[in-house]
């Protein structure tokens, strides 16, 4: 690995001529995002041939609604991964958001929508603690978020005495169950979310700083990036996203459980990776991640509609992640590039 790094140095040191190379490399991520989207659509349409009930508009809606959780969640995870970290506390924070929404708001007054921001603030607090541990105390992100996850889940276990109660606040139910202009309102919400998230990651000053940090922390510091602050931001955002997902899940299933977040951790990482981001940080776009999240959800929906048993479904999912990884290898792109020339 280190040798290949060296060869990059040599390559660039001697690159004096030629024009197309830079552009090709930078737009790789865009191509990747488009490819993932195309595969999604092809899958949905292709599914029609297997079963006419599949590929209908209502099924697209189902995919979008189910995918909305993963899209929101993997935005935060994507930002953390962009800076070279990893957030393992997502399931715990999802559960925190869900349980606060049901046990705390739902019990007292389901109409108290104005308390939802307080829930998100609490989640942000968890993210902040993780961030402080990682940036100031220099605990590796993997360990810090893992420990926070264990701590938060245990606190929730104690708080609910093992059995969460209460129902969904009206605002959460409305988000998940109502519709706007004939579309489920959650789809409208997620479209808005994607636009804001894309603007943040690709077009904002803060977004650029995150890329810089993920690429090379030392160089970013020297270039005047506020590295301490900007290393902390993704963890807070990620926790808030997890909180939103918790509230969404509560609205969707009208209740919270202590394990409601468990199934989302690995998909959130998988969505980011399939979307073309480097797990080492510094590479990737949010649109790619959205594509990855929708692809995973589409596959899940189709496979379960086909009627495969859950074990085979899981195996296929794993194989897809693996194939994506093998295809996305940098070397492969270079090889393909040299073939075209």
């Amino acid at each position: 690995m280190t040798f290949s790094k060296d060869s990059t140095q040599d390559r660039s040191a001697f690159a004096q001529t030629g024009d197309a190379r830079g552009v090709a490399r930078v737009s790789r991520e865009t191509i990747n995002a488009i490819a993932v989207a195309v595969i999604c659509i092809a899958l949905l349409l292709g599914a029609r041939f297997i079963n006419p009930a599949l590929g209908s508009w209502s099924q697209v809606e189902t995919v979008l609604v189910l995918g909305s959780f993963l899209v929101v969640l993997s935005f935060g995870q994507g930002l953390v991964i962009l800076t070279g970290g990893l957030d393992l506390s997502l399931p715990a924070v999802i559960t925190l958001g869900g349980i606060m929404a049901t046990n705390w708001i739902g019990m007292t007054d389901p109409t108290a929508w104005y308390l939802l921001p307080v829930v998100l603030l609490a989640c942000a607090g968890v993210g902040l603690v993780s961030a402080i541990g990682i940036v100031w105390l220099r605990v590796p992100p993997f360990i810090m978020t893992l420990a926070m996850s264990i701590i938060v889940l245990s606190a929730l276990l104690g708080y609910t005495r093992g059995s969460p109660r209460g129902g969904s606040p009206d605002a959460a139910t409305a988000l998940m169950k109502s519709s706007v202009l004939g579309l489920p309102s959650v789809i409208v919400f997620v479209i808005g979310f994607v636009i804001v998230g894309w603007l943040f990651q690709s077009r904002s000053v803060a977004g650029r700083y995150l890329y810089a940090i993920g690429t090379n922390l030392d160089a970013a510091r020297i270039a005047g990036v506020p590295v301490v602050l900007m290393q902390m931001v993704p963890y807070v955002i990620s926790a808030v996203c997890a909180g939103i997902v918790g509230i969404m899940l509560v609205g969707y299933s009208n209740g919270a459980t202590l394990r409601m977040g468990d199934d989302y951790l690995l998909p959130s990482i998988a969505a980011v990776v399939i979307g073309g981001s480097s797990i080492l940080g510094g590479r990737g776009t949010f649109l790619g991640t959205v594509g990855g999240a929708l692809l995973l959800t589409t596959l899940g929906t189709i496979i379960s509609a086909i009627g495969l048993q859950i074990g085979l479904r899981t195996i296929i999912e794993g194989l897809i992640v693996l194939t994506a990884l093998l295809l996305l290898r940098e070397e492969l792109f270079q090889k393909l590039g040299s073939l075209w020339r």
């Binding site: 990482i269 195996i315 999912e317 992640v321």
Partner: peptide, 19 residues
Amino acid sequence: QSIAATLATMIICQGIALV
């Protein structure tokens, strides 16, 4: 990347266990 590769094998293993 080890974390990504073993994520994939873990998902596959879980599937196998379920089968």
